[in-house]
Structure formats: structure tokens, C-alpha cells
């Protein structure tokens, strides 16, 4: 009880004092997670749309694989990317291990399957509605992909937000590939893990509250945009 109270007070203090170190961590968290969502979206959204519109042998297995990848433990993903990016690994010469870029890659790998699976789900209803009309226009499944992505944009915003939520809450993978280097690769979640292990539970909790506030703010912003735009589109 006392700890919780201390945490809330500390969280307010962190936000109100605009502590530069905390702001830098918040900024990096946002940049890493938003970049990861963007990159994962470039792959996951078209892939999900393609799975929604095409019928090919092995499609069911692809969906099962995708759903399994959704459950990929972040630590495992982090480890794989660590081994790839390590100087002794195949992508070592890029020198990306322990950099924010490595963290973006790890988060993108983690959330791309989530985005693809959720996109498939969000667009398959739309495809059911559009399929015949698009075929009448002479548009095959491949041409339908960008159409569905655009016409499903409001539902996809929710998909992107789910990806962002998962990315920004993720700690296992970014800890491994980023190294939690102060002032360079320390993000909200790894800072929380660090403060927890230093036994400063109120500070850890306060950082957690700040993280939640950010995620809530991003969601509120996106939902407001979505609301305004979808009122327009009907």
C-alpha cells in the first residue's frame, strides 16, 4: 500500500519534473516501438491481406504457423536476433548489436506475425463483402490487397495499436539485443527491469505507470483520429 502510494507520487514527479534522463528514455521507447510497428506493418499488413484473399494449398498451414509465431517468446526471438547480429554471426559486419536499430529489428520480428494474423482477421470480412464486386471489375486477389488495406484502414489502425502495445511492453528481446545501455539503448521496459533488480520497486512501478500513460495517450490519439475519419467514411 505504501509502496503503491510512493510509486504514484514518484510517477507524477517523473512526469511533472520532465526529468531529461526519463524523457530521453521515453523518447527512445517511442522511436524504437513506432519504427518497429512501421517496419512490421510493411511486411505484416500485406501478408495478412494476402492470406485473407488467396486460397492456395498450404494456406491453412501458413495461418497455423503465423498463429504459432504470434506466441514466439520474446526471449527466444531476442536470442535468435542476438546470434544473427553478433559480430561472430552472419550479420555481424553490420555492427548492429547493442544499438537501437537491433531493438527495432527484434520488436519488428516479434510483432510482424501479430500484425499479419490480426490483419487477416480484420480484412477477411471485408473481402467477403468485396470479392465478387472486385472480380467483376477484373481485379484478382493481388490487386485486391492494396484495396482492402486502404478500405480497411480504420480496422487496421486498431491492429497497428495492438502491435504498438505489444512492442512497447516488450522487455525480453530488447534487453538481449539492446543491452540496456544507459543513454543509448535503455528504454522504458529495460529501465523498469533494472530498477526492479536494484530493489527500487517504487521507482520501477512509477516508470511502469509512465509507460502505461504513454501507451494510453498514443491509443487515445489514434482512436480520436479513427473516430473522426470513420465518421466521415461511414
Amino acid at each position: 500500500m505504501g509502496d503503491l502510494h510512493a510509486a504514484i507520487t514518484a510517477a507524477l514527479g517523473l512526469i511533472l519534473a520532465v526529468d531529461p534522463a526519463v524523457m530521453a528514455i521515453v523518447g527512445l521507447s517511442l522511436r524504437v516501438s513506432l519504427s518497429a510497428v512501421l517496419i512490421a506493418a510493411l511486411v505484416g499488413l500485406p501478408l495478412g491481406a494476402l492470406l485473407a484473399v488467396t486460397r492456395f494449398p498450404g494456406r491453412q498451414s501458413a495461418i497455423v504457423a503465423l498463429n504459432a509465431l504470434m506466441g514466439l517468446p520474446p526471449v527466444v526471438a531476442g536470442l535468435l536476433i542476438y546470434l544473427l547480429l553478433s559480430r561472430s554471426g552472419p550479420l555481424g559486419p553490420l555492427g548492429l548489436l547493442f544499438t537501437p536499430t537491433a531493438m527495432v529489428i527484434a520488436q519488428a520480428v516479434l510483432i510482424a506475425p501479430i500484425l499479419a494474423a490480426l490483419t487477416r482477421e480484420a480484412l477477411s470480412g471485408l473481402w467477403e463483402e468485396y470479392a465478387e464486386q472486385l472480380r467483376s471489375f477484373g481485379a484478382g486477389p493481388l490487386r485486391a490487397v492494396p484495396t482492402l488495406l486502404w478500405d480497411g484502414r480504420f480496422a487496421l489502425l486498431t491492429v497497428l495499436l495492438a502491435g504498438f502495445g505489444r512492442a512497447s511492453a516488450e522487455v525480453g528481446a530488447v534487453m538481449i539485443v539492446g543491452g540496456n545501455i544507459e543513454g543509448f539503448t535503455r528504454v522504458m521496459t529495460t529501465a523498469i527491469a533494472l530498477e526492479t533488480s536494484k530493489g527500487d520497486l517504487p521507482l520501477a512501478l512509477a516508470l511502469g505507470l509512465v509507460l502505461m500513460a504513454i501507451v494510453v495517450a498514443v491509443n487515445a490519439l489514434a482512436q480520436a483520429l479513427r473516430g473522426a475519419a470513420s465518421r466521415w467514411a461511414g
Binding site: E129, Y130, E132, Q133, F137, G138, A139, R143, T147, W150, D151, G152, R153, A233, G234
Partner: peptide, 19 residues
């Protein structure tokens, strides 16, 4: 009618672009 989630004009333009 199956209408795209776009403006009236964009609906008419869509199949024209495909063509």
C-alpha cells in the same frame, strides 16, 4: 450495391483505374 469505403467520386474512379 457493394460500395468501397471511399468518396463517391473515388468509387467511380476505382474500376476505371483498374481498366
Amino acid at each position: 450495391p457493394v460500395l468501397l469505403r471511399r468518396s463517391v467520386a473515388a468509387n467511380v474512379a476505382y474500376p476505371l483505374a483498374l481498366a
